[in-house]
Amino acid sequence: MTRLFLDEHAWTTLEAAMARIIPTDADPGAPEAGTVDFVDRYLAGPAYVYADPSGGEFLRLDERRSVAWMRRIEVLRERYHNGVAELDRRANELRRTDFSELSEEDQDLVLGALEVEELGPPDTRDPVMQRPVSDRHLGFFETLVLHTRQGFFSDPAYGGNRGRAGWRLVAFPGPTLPADANEEMPGPRDNA
């Protein structure tokens, strides 16, 4: 896929970070699913906010909604710009190299430190029923995790979840198009 917004360095850095967030094992991970393509498309502007339910194209937003989305996307662009710089800053502090050049272990160290700084140590957090669904008020680390999940599990129309890799991982049937409801469900079908 062609790059729409991210520069090459940001693309490489985010792809490396996302590869640690949903790593590749026996099943595809973030790189195979194209999660960075997803973020690139999202940051490109309000033309890519809502997939047309009947397939392919994106919905055109009215003027007010378009302006509101552009404002939010500009905030996200800045968050990513600063976030990529912060990953590199920490990588340079650790090994005098950029984040994408670090070993996987070192990348995990950098991401782990960022996580603790933003959210506190994992064992001090209360279990939650629902993690945040909106990216409006998150720090960079939590945004990156949420967007990696979104790119991995959202409809392929948004640029990620390539080959339905995310849905396959969790054995979720998913629709063929957003407009297609899925009537095939496993499990009992008898009346109660």
């Binding site: 279990p127 629902q130 993690r131 991982l169 054995a171």
Partner: peptide
């Protein structure tokens, strides 16, 4: 949220191999 993006298992790690495994084994 019973769909994959916002599926949340409490106390699961947020990221990494262990988090992926939670999704794979517990989503259904």
């Amino acid at each position: 949220s019973p769909w994959p993006i916002n599926f949340t298992v409490p106390a699961s790690p947020l990221w990494g191999a262990a988090a992926k495994n939670v999704d794979r084994t517990l989503f259904n």
